[in-house]
């Protein structure tokens, strides 16, 4: 009942908001100057400050938790991440900026969560983390924080092209009961207001992010699920490759932008 009620309300919001769109959105693929904006730039000063100050950014609590897990010996192998990778500040620098990628010996891409799970199951011989479990997110945040300030650098692997094409296709396809595509909001209407919220350009610069709405840390996949749910589209199952395809497309689209994980978002 609740869901139905909200679905109806959603039509009202989106309909009304587009009619009332306030500020002029910027077209993203302009010629010349880079008009790409991180979601950070669409936040007010109070939230920017929260993200910038490491002892005020709640995402840093998860980085702290991740740093403890980094040196905890677990699994049948009894090894910690640190036993093989040493100081994360050097070994993990720039790593998150390259994912999703195809691991050695594999034929399909994994995102950072999947990459960490590979080490967890194969190298540590410990059970894989549940999707979006706090320990997994904490490790992702710790690893991703080592790439802060680094440019997003998707791998130059020809095997990834077909995945990016699939991701872009999903991004541009109209779907859901609202018959909207990601592009309609994030390319054509970015910068405009949707029920008071500024529509960002959807660059994955800050993941995992501390989203105030979640009152916690969450993955890019969870963020994508929220947007799919927002347009009343059918959600891909949590472990579906479609998310990795979308992530690959979004990272390519944000190539060169600065990593800022763990970011804060409303």
């Amino acid at each position: 009942m609740r869901a139905r009620y909200f679905a109806i309300a959603l039509f009202l919001v989106f309909g009304a908001s587009f009619a009332l769109a306030q500020s002029q959105g910027q077209s993203q693929r302009g010629s010349g100057a880079d008009t790409r904006r991180s979601g950070y730039q669409d936040m007010g000063p109070a939230l920017q400050q929260m993200q910038d100050d490491d002892t005020a950014n709640p995402g840093m609590l998860f980085v702290q938790q991740g740093s403890k897990l980094w040196s905890a010996r677990v699994g049948v192998a009894g090894k910690a991440c640190a036993d093989c990778h040493g100081d994360a500040a050097t070994s993990m620098k720039g790593v998150a900026a390259r994912y999703p990628a195809i691991p050695p010996g594999a034929d399909r891409p994994v995102d950072l969560e999947g990459r960490i799970d590979l080490c967890r199951t194969e190298r540590q011989q410990a059970p894989a983390f549940a999707h979006d479990s706090q320990d997994s997110l904490a490790l992702q945040a710790f690893v991703a924080a080592q790439s802060r300030g680094q440019p997003i650098a998707p791998p130059d692997d020809p095997r990834l092209s077909s995945w990016r094409v699939q991701g872009e296709e999903i991004y541009r396809r109209r779907q859901g009961q609202l018959n909207l595509s990601c592009a309609i909001c994030h390319d054509e209407n970015a910068g405009k207001k949707l029920a008071g919220v500024t529509i960002p350009q959807a660059h994955p610069t800050g993941y995992p992010v501390y989203r105030l709405e979640w009152q916690g840390l969450g993955s890019l996949r969870r963020r994508l699920r929220n947007c799919l749910f927002g347009i009343r589209a059918e959600l891909y199952p949590v472990g579906a490759p479609e998310y990795v395809a979308l992530e690959l497309y979004l990272m390519e689209r944000a190539k060169g932008m600065t990593m800022e994980a763990p970011a804060v978002r409303p």
């Binding site: 100050d53 490491d54 002892t55 005020a56 709640p58 840093m60 609590l61 702290q64």
Partner: peptide, 20 residues
């Protein structure tokens, strides 16, 4: 827990403490 407090301070200084 994250605490931001200076490790050293001048006598009589008013210092800010932040805790998360």
């Amino acid at each position: 827990i994250l605490v931001n407090a200076p490790k050293t301070a001048k006598r009589g200084a008013v210092i800010e403490i932040k805790a998360l």
